[in-house]
Nucleic acid binder design. Sequence first.
DNA 1: CAGTGGTCTAGACCACAAC
DNA 2: TTGTGGTCTAGACCACTGA
Lengths: 261, 261
Amino acid sequence: MARWHEIAHELRAAIAGGDVAPGDVLPRETDLQERYRTSRTTVRQAVAALEKEGLVEKVRRRGTVVRRPPTRRRIPRSRRVHRDGIGYYFDTAAQGWRPLEPPAIGRVPAPADIARLLGLPAATEVVTRSRVMGDPGSGDVTQLATSYLAPAAVDELPVLAEPDTGPGGIYDRMEEAGHGPLRWEEAVSARMPSPDEARRLSLPPGVPVLRITRITRGADGRALEVNDTRVSAERFEVVNEIDRDPTAAPRNPPVPSGPPA
Amino acid sequence: MARWHEIAHELRAAIAGGDVAPGDVLPRETDLQERYRTSRTTVRQAVAALEKEGLVEKVRRRGTVVRRPPTRRRIPRSRRVHRDGIGYYFDTAAQGWRPLEPPAIGRVPAPADIARLLGLPAATEVVTRSRVMGDPGSGDVTQLATSYLAPAAVDELPVLAEPDTGPGGIYDRMEEAGHGPLRWEEAVSARMPSPDEARRLSLPPGVPVLRITRITRGADGRALEVNDTRVSAERFEVVNEIDRDPTAAPRNPPVPSGPPA
DNA sequence: CAGTGGTCTAGACCACAAC
DNA sequence: TTGTGGTCTAGACCACTGA
């Protein structure tokens, strides 16, 4: 076993055993060097392993801080979307966050995975609507969302490429054009952030992004739009409810939760 | 800007621009040292950054390999669970994977987050049922699942702590005891794996685990069980369907997808 | 079995933010 | 202001594994 593995193992045990509590700092690097009779490089490699696991965070001039177990805010999902009441479940206002700026409209070659979902040849040019959501008060960014619009939808409804799409947004426009009732399919996965995403979402090392990829289809089944939303996997979770009884009456849509206590 | 940032930036651009295709290798470390007139430490720090992002994977004797964009297998979810037909949506057999060994029964203090979901004081001792799922043919492990059982449920139904819980499993036993119809709430999030999880799921560096935390409640609303499932975030995604029209008829449950082509 | 990345040393200077 | 981690050097030997 490599020396740095041993050191990482002991530090991990000290954290798990409560010898160092969340918020506390690990011994400084020079102290660990001395304690383990090793070079600074080896010590740093051990601590870097814990950082990659999201267990600790390095803070300059303070030290290596043990991170708190995350409290996640719930992103509730119901099977059905209601037009009244709480709004669409993916109505961002209902989720407690708001756009920090108007959507940025762009035209880019569709990334390979998006093109596949839209049923387009790779690198077809598509219109994008990019939003940065968060708390306007603090400027805290919680969510990066990009909509990729099918070219056919934009040709039919040029307003989709406008910053302001009118009351109800793009989905109401699509239904007005006869595509309703709309259906959505939503995939949740995760990956490590790009450097840009990490910076914009203020993600410390060792924190993945939770990725919510939602495809919108019209009544004919054709894909109209793909929405790709990224949030901190440490700050959010996507919640669904399931009933066992096939005859059970639909329950009320879940109410959006407030910020963690 | 630090030198290693520059190097990482150039390597990232070479990958994004297709100069090095997936499956290709980056120049060896000594070549990069020479090209950038720097030390091996600096080169390694740059490559380590790409590895943390999941872009490359180091393979001994081969080099630093550019990873392929992941193809994810879908884990479908419907709002309702059916007892006939495809089975329960979380019936693992219907998902294309099977237990590699009988469930391991344990008794452990409940982790803080599990105790909270079960409505128990922290560190209450609970019965666990741990499963390792995968492909029995290849031995490939795809899923680690642990059920945490509420003490009251085990007191009432001691069979829940047996390796074999009989036909239909623990949920049928709970319904037979009068807790039905059961309801579930499922949260999807992600985090970096522990070293043990990374080893058992064969996760390369830079790949998070997708975590599916499902809570089972009886008709009276009390929590009976929490299931904590971990899969590779690069190999799986959780998919839900949503209708807009509140009066739309329920659609058929989604059919489990096969392995990626 | 040879070449790749893995590990480790001992030392130096720097940049930043908490004190 | 100053102590922390951040960056970097030049070199050595090792272990694994795929050509």
